[in-house]
């Protein structure tokens, strides 16, 4: 991994020459929601915490589960399932809260069923041609990555937490 990074860094100044040889890769954390796998750009992730007591906030938007205490900070937690119109979350031992750090909204927690692995994908491994897909959650996806045999939908994080969409 370190080599890869070094290569990527070396790559930058003379990208044009080496463009076809080494491609810059972005790391994604692969999470499971329902039967599907989703990738979250690691640069947005502040932290991953286990499930804990969520305090409900009355009158908050429906997809917000409430708030949690993250080391003395109060952080809102949203259910991506509710936002995408899937069935409600089933809380179990594998449930995790991904804490996203966003410029505009600050810290926001996102509930996922499980966290699988970290993968690195280059642009060539991601199919960006997903916009015309008819799936209900397509607006939150900006590409589909190929990871070995499986496929990983790449979240468009800003759309996921954006309040206007939905």
């Amino acid at each position: 991994m370190a080599d890869q990074k070094a290569l990527a860094a070396d790559n930058k100044p003379n990208k044009h020459e080496l463009d076809n040889v080494v491609e810059e890769k972005i790391q994604y954390i692969v999470v499971g929601i329902g039967d599907e796998k989703y990738g979250i750009d690691i640069s947005f992730i502040d932290n991953i915490v286990r499930m804990q007591k969520i305090t409900r906030v009355p009158k908050a938007p429906d997809h917000y589960m409430g708030v949690i205490n993250l080391r003395g900070m109060v952080v809102p937690v949203m259910s991506i399932r509710r936002k995408m119109g899937l069935s409600d979350d089933v809380i179990n031992n594998a449930t995790r809260i991904i804490i996203l750090k966003l410029e505009e909204q600050g810290l926001v927690g996102v509930l996922v069923d499980e966290v699988n692995e970290v993968i690195a994908l280059g642009e060539s491994e991601i199919d960006r041609n997903v916009k015309n897909s008819k799936k209900s959650d397509s607006s939150f996806i900006n590409g589909i990555g190929k990871n070995g045999d499986g496929l990983v939908s790449i979240f468009e994080i800003t759309a996921v937490v954006d309040e206007v969409v939905a």
Partner: peptide, 27 residues
């Protein structure tokens, strides 16, 4: 007093949150 975070801040009846002795959040 802690802020509720930007996304659900414009809540009319909740002015903020606090963290209790046991780590739980109370509004």
């Amino acid at each position: 007093i802690k802020s509720l975070g930007k996304v659900i801040e414009n809540n009319k009846i909740i002015s903020g949150a606090t963290i209790l002795g046991d780590g739980e959040v109370a509004l």
